[in-house]
Design a protein around this nucleic acid. Sequence first.
DNA 1: GGGAGCCCTGAATCCATAT
DNA 2: TATATGGATTCAGGGCTCC
Lengths: 343, 343
Amino acid sequence: MNALPEGCADVVFADPPYNLQLRRDLQRPEGGMVAGVSEEWDLFDGFESYDAFTRAWLKAARRILKPDGTIWAIGSYHNVFRVGAALQDAGFWVLNDIIWRKCNPMPNFRGTRFTNAHETLIWAARSERSKYRFNYHAMKAMNDDLQMRSDWLIPICGGNERLKRRGAKAHPTQKPEALLYRILLACSAPGDVVVDPFFGTGTTGAVAKLLGRHWIGIEEDCVYAAIAEERIAGLLPLAGGALAVSQGRRGEARIPFGALVEAGIVRPGSMLHAPARRGEALVRADGTVAMGDQCGSIHQVGAAAMGAATCNGWTFWHVVEAEQLVVLDAKRDVYRAMLANAA
Amino acid sequence: MNALPEGCADVVFADPPYNLQLRRDLQRPEGGMVAGVSEEWDLFDGFESYDAFTRAWLKAARRILKPDGTIWAIGSYHNVFRVGAALQDAGFWVLNDIIWRKCNPMPNFRGTRFTNAHETLIWAARSERSKYRFNYHAMKAMNDDLQMRSDWLIPICGGNERLKRRGAKAHPTQKPEALLYRILLACSAPGDVVVDPFFGTGTTGAVAKLLGRHWIGIEEDCVYAAIAEERIAGLLPLAGGALAVSQGRRGEARIPFGALVEAGIVRPGSMLHAPARRGEALVRADGTVAMGDQCGSIHQVGAAAMGAATCNGWTFWHVVEAEQLVVLDAKRDVYRAMLANAA
DNA sequence: GGGAGCCCTGAATCCATAT
DNA sequence: TATATGGATTCAGGGCTCC
């Protein structure tokens, strides 16, 4: 990066090593092994060594950024606090932290933590005084005329998009093009220069070329670099007015019964009633219900009460309200309305 | 916090000041050329001062945590990188970063950035070696039998839940009870001690009391403290049965396979069958099994049959009953029921 | 051709206890 | 403290085969 001229970049996108610290191999419940990140480039002696590395590349990135340029950095809880703090210390001005929510993350196979279902991006201007570019209306249009939020739902990179070499993934941490697409559309213009100091297999370059942005990629691994060159060479940029976007919003959110309990709409300790006095069930703190020995979800216990294989607990169970039975599904509507309106 | 005894807390929940306004007020430039330098210096100084504050309360929190205790800290992009890095530097071991997604965030009125629609929580154990509590099954049950993810959709605190004083909100950053409900349900048990060093109007205490946890709140503002006391005094804890949450098998007594053989539930000389006809094994009198040359526990021989490093023999092997395959784990349940009836 | 079902895989700090 | 062993634990999506 130090070979580039000062102030040459409109945007820097950086996907640095995450400094993962895996203790041992991880086995899937069905017997297979998880292919983790064991590459040498992700090995550091400790936080001090990682921090020094981070400060060095941030300093170089800041030098090549135009005064009004912005930087993106992506990370996980292993490294993102170090990167974020170093970025602030270096004089960058944080504009947003963006959550990449994965709709299909790897589960937590051992049941020891919450499923790690997101990664964090930091978007920052070169300085507090930067007049940075934010294509507000493009983002709003892309989000069905609602302001684009700081949490983005995007699938992980797989299928045909995932680059392979001899049947195996070419790079352990290839990012989805949709992620870079939204980033470059948000904060750059056609003709801008985008620099990626951890180019890998070139997702940033591929999307930049597609969107008519110039790109510079830096990659020390020559195998990755060769794959990236080949990948990008085979692409054509979009024609002038073809930047069609508009991504529909997802369907109605699934509501777990536990969310109603948590929100106090159905209280733990209260009773659910089956129609025609066919039984009642105690609501427990975690959103399960208990009827005699039976204990489980509203659907499972409902099925047991009906003597059926399956049951829709939302329409089966009722709560008492003002001496009337009210079907649970009505309470779900209340919760949905709360999600939509409450303030 | 330093007045509390060492190792008294199972959980610490901390909602520290976010450092939002302070810097701007402190760094009015006096004039001319000095402004730029002065700003950068003040910027650095602002972070330094905030970091020192953060290190101090984290150190105090670590002292009062039990060795297996965990800490939660919540923040936004203004401060969370500082808090996260300081937390790691202090020896805490990050378990998850959790994204509180707000379904009703404040819009970005000037259209200059992405709508800031989330806050970040960090969940960390006191040390890497801590045997921390995570109520995996309760979280899974609460989420309709899917693993709880690291992104949580919860409304901001409003409506009747929002505490008011003379028509205005009593506290500028009151957290929703649903957030604390999920946190305390995830990582504590009834009777545990929860400490909140930035108690505010007492959301942590209110939910702790509801869920049958002991709580200690620290608040320097006596108006907030008075509001919190009044608020919590008016609450009733949930009754015992409602506090029960779903448990997994981890807590249950271990049953050796030999006990089933001994009890006649599985007969010596009978065969165990692997799924998809991947092999069968002979049950021997001492509770070991044999498959060809392989001989050992149900787990060891199962692993050999799978070609895997390890195997849960209880869920791998099946017995034939009425011309149906029945998983061995069901037989263990039969034995457990036998034990329970005998007692 | 279509649908059901099986297999594979993804940035993962992923066990507890007795000896 | 290191080693051995019991045994708990997974979601979504794409690609493929097979009927």
